[in-house]
């Protein structure tokens, strides 16, 4: 499992920072902080006036490079992790968003489309975890 419980103020202050990042990008640049979409277009090398995407990714990754990511408790074997990555990449592009784009930005925009997407991926993930637990315990 995931080690020690997270202090409540870490959860709240961290969430506030995430919301602030999304708010700054929207209010000043008029863009949505959807990481799967930003990654998609950065991967396709669409730059020029879209250089903000590379800058956003650089900002996102800089804290991890400097501070590290702390303790990491992997929950899947390397093989399952690779498969999960493919599903995450494929699913977020077909579904036009992930936890950041639909879950944070779309929900804050009260977008029915994003709220339906968020409920769907959280519900399916809960069922997936329950099934994995059952399979690995028995």
């Amino acid at each position: 499992m995931g080690g020690a419980a997270i202090p409540v103020w870490h959860s709240l202050a961290g969430g506030a920072l995430i919301g602030a990042g999304a708010a700054v990008l929207l209010l000043f640049d008029g863009q949505v902080a959807g990481i799967s979409g930003i990654l998609d277009r950065a991967l396709h090398g669409v730059l020029g006036e879209q250089a903000w995407r590379v800058a956003f990714l650089a900002g996102l990754l800089l804290p991890a490079v400097i501070l590290g990511t702390g303790p990491v408790s992997w929950q899947a074997s390397p093989g399952v992790l690779g498969l999960a990555g493919v599903l995450v990449g494929f699913g977020t592009r077909v579904g036009s968003g992930c936890t950041s784009g639909h879950g944070v930005c779309g929900a804050a925009n009260l977008s029915p489309r994003s709220i339906v997407a968020t409920v769907t991926f959280i519900a399916v993930a809960i069922v997936t975890v329950a099934v994995v637990r059952r399979v690995t315990v028995t």
Binding site: I35, G85, T99, V116, F121
Partner: peptide, 24 residues
């Protein structure tokens, strides 16, 4: 939207990782 989000949910549930944290 529904199909993609469900597929993402399976991958997220298997790994506990979504795109941002994965890159980080």
């Amino acid at each position: 939207l529904l199909l993609g989000s469900a597929i993402f949910g399976v991958g997220w549930g298997l790994s506990g990782v979504c795109p941002g944290p994965g890159l980080m």
